[in-house]
């Protein structure tokens, strides 16, 4: 808005424009530099990375680190597990969120105020880590995939966003008309509401899927078996735990440190790749999701 308003007078804020542009460039550099460094280091000769020769571009270009990852069984297991958790988890998330959001969006549902309070309250108060852990344990979910899929089945914030969308973007008259034609609520939801809500459904799938891909804490407390580890837990081992192992081995074999060090950069890239590759295509949807969420229902 102010862009148009200030386009005419030249004297108005030339210096201001320069300051704003310089700040913007600085922000971009600060955000990008660490990322570029990691990418470059992952393609560099480990000895040169360790020697601190890598600043901006790869030195001694090599795929060695990536080849090492290819042979690391743990990473592949983690990858496979995470893909499963993300797919199954998002599926459960979507079903549960839609089933809750749609009825609660209906102004003619008796008791909907009460149910909304019941749900919204959980955003501000919870039993806490220990009682939740004990519950999941009592349900026999510890050390099974269920612990990663069921306790987080609905994100209340997403539920509220979806309900707001159903309420504000789908004309109530349409639903009433469908009712008059004898359409049941299940059919109404399936063949009218959902097809009309594709944008919000896409946003929710993205939010949930990225959430599953990046989550590590539930796995940390609920999963013991290494064969069930999601990628992030494997990643944690490589990035943080092997660090101390590598330090202990300083006197020992140098190659081992070199390998452990160089694999870190590549592993960061490999694990973030799916989300980052998707990112340019879905970025608009994410933003849209935040916008819809900020409109209070």
């Amino acid at each position: 808005m102010s862009k148009q308003a200030t386009a005419k007078p030249v004297s108005d804020g030339r210096a201001f424009d320069i300051v704003v542009n310089v700040l913007a460039v600085l922000v971009i550099l600060v955000v990008l530099y660490p990322l570029i460094f990691v990418v470059s280091a992952s393609f560099s000769d480990p000895a040169k990375v360790l020697g601190g020769e890598v600043w901006l571009l790869p030195k001694g270009f090599t795929f060695e680190a990536y080849e090492n990852i290819l042979h690391n069984g743990k990473i592949w297991t983690g990858y496979r597990n995470t893909i499963f958790y993300a797919a199954a988890g998002t599926f459960i998330n979507m079903i549960m969120t839609v089933l809750a959001a749609y009825p609660l969006s209906r102004p003619d549902l008796p008791g909907r105020k009460f149910l909304m309070v019941l749900i919204t309250l959980t955003m501000f108060f919870s039993g806490g880590l220990i009682p939740t852990y004990m519950l999941v344990k009592n349900l026999g979910m510890v050390d099974t995939a269920w612990a990663l899929l069921v306790p987080g089945a609905i994100a209340t914030y997403n539920l509220i966003v979806m309900r707001t969308y159903f309420q504000n973007s789908i004309p109530w008259e349409l639903q009433e008309a469908a009712h008059m034609d004898g359409c049941s609520n299940w059919r109404l939801l399936w063949s009218i509401i959902l097809p009309l809500s594709k944008p919000i459904l896409a946003v929710m799938v993205l939010f949930y899927a990225v959430g599953h891909w990046n989550s590590f804490f539930n796995a940390l407390i609920y999963i013991r078996q290494e064969s069930l580890y999601p990628l992030q837990l494997v990643l944690r081992e490589i990035l943080m735990i092997s660090q101390s192992a590598a330090v202990d081995a300083t006197v020992g074999i140098e190659d081992k440190i070199l390998l452990a060090e160089s694999i870190k950069y590549a592993v960061i890239i490999v694990s973030s790749l799916p989300v980052l590759v998707m990112y340019p295509f879905v970025q608009r949807h994410f933003v849209k999701g935040v916008m819809i969420g900020s409109v209070k229902g």
Partner: peptide
């Protein structure tokens, strides 16, 4: 500036 938001905590601490 959105990019880092999509990286996991583990990756951030790794970086």
């Amino acid at each position: 500036t959105f990019i880092p938001h999509f990286m996991s905590v583990v990756v951030i601490v790794g970086i």
